[in-house]
Computed example of a mutant assay.
Amino acid sequence: MTDQLLNHREEGPASAPPLLLGPSLGTSYALWDRVAPELSAGHRVVRWDLPGHGGSAAGLIGAGATVGDLASLVLTLADALGIGRFAYAGVSLGGAVGLHLAVHHPDRLSSLAVICSSAHFNGAGPWRERAARVRREGLGGLADGADARWFTAGFTVPQLIRDHREADPEGYAACCDALAAFDLRDRLAEVSVPTLLIAGREDPATPPEHLREIADAVPDATLVELPGASHLAPAQRPGAVLTALRAHFDGTARRGMEVRREVLGDAHVDRAQARQTPFTARFQDFISRYAWGEIWTDPTLTRRERSMITLTALVAHGHYDELGMHVRAARRNGLTPEEIGAVLLQTAVYCGVPAANSAFATAQRVLAEEDE
């Protein structure tokens, strides 16, 4: 079964929101080397190789392949990994795969980022000519000129040039066939997932106007143009690409921070953020993303009910510093002092009188401070 799947690499917690990363023609998943490890702090990142590139078998597609064929391989990979709905980012041909998924399989995508790509690739002729040349001569000549197509003058990534040179000619040519047949311009208005477009200002292959064309047609799309970037922006401007992708994909963390502030108050959250260090940063992100971004935002329970549950759990485990913080939160969530007292009295029955005694002392102090 594995030889029928796209070669891939997984990073990040298996329980984190999945994010699939697609490559550009001629490269491998090494294109994401300076971005994927950072994204994996908050995502289950799966980056994959095109057929005939990196570790993917060339025979996964054949002559006359389409972008739809590549998208089907991505969905097969996701299914094999137990991934249903996922976020997706792709570069060039990988970006075209993302657009196809957004139009034809919107139920599988939660959000989309299209990087240095296009809804069309300047007509079929040049790609058919390139496919014929590669089938006839191999990839040596094209790899020699890759730097000029991919990067601004003086910049290179030797690993990606090696990937290009070592790609299977038949697999590469079949990908050229897919680019030749690709044109989604008349379907862009159907894209309904949150969409980010990233353009390299100095990209000769898919210049910024190609990304602007998508941004103008896709409802509520966002466009970012990166100065000093050519066609392989994740390799040349990884910091800028990472910043844009985080802002786009981390909606759960943003919403979590909003709820955290609403429940705990700005002063508390500001103090926590001020104390944050590189050592604790991932833990703070974890709290915002999972505790506040997923659990506290679940509409099944009201915030009042969640406060009552939280107070009980904190008493049961003797976390009295946290209890004081959540007594304040309970007041923000609408509980009266009498209701807080009733919750603590209930804990005396099920958590023990000594625990409830300490809890009443903590709550009385906090409520008095609140009154002042």
Rank of each mutant, 00 (worst) to 15 (best):
V191I: 13
R136H: 15
I161G: 01
A235R: 02
D168R: 09
M308Q: 09
R187W: 06
A253P: 03
L39F: 09
D147G: 07
V45M: 11
G84Y: 06
G251L: 08
G140C: 00
R365W: 01
V263T: 09
V35Y: 06
V67S: 10
P354F: 09
V134F: 01
Q346T: 10
R365G: 04
I198F: 05
S110F: 00
S40A: 15
R260F: 11
V343F: 05
A78N: 09
G125A: 15
E209N: 10
R47G: 07
C175F: 10
A63I: 04
I161T: 14
A63E: 12
A58G: 10
G52T: 07
L344G: 04
G98Q: 03
H100W: 15
I214K: 06
T362R: 13
D266N: 07
A247H: 12
A78R: 03
V35K: 01
A174R: 04
L101S: 08
F155I: 14
A368R: 14
A65N: 09
Q276Y: 00
Q276L: 03
V269D: 07
G228E: 07
D285F: 15
R135E: 13
R237A: 14
N7E: 14
I115S: 01
V241R: 06
L196E: 05
D298N: 15
G55C: 14
R303I: 00
P337I: 08
T2P: 05
T222W: 11
H210V: 11
L197F: 11
G256Y: 13
A267P: 03
Q159T: 14
M308A: 12
L25I: 10
A361P: 07
E258Y: 13
L367C: 05
T27P: 06
E338M: 04
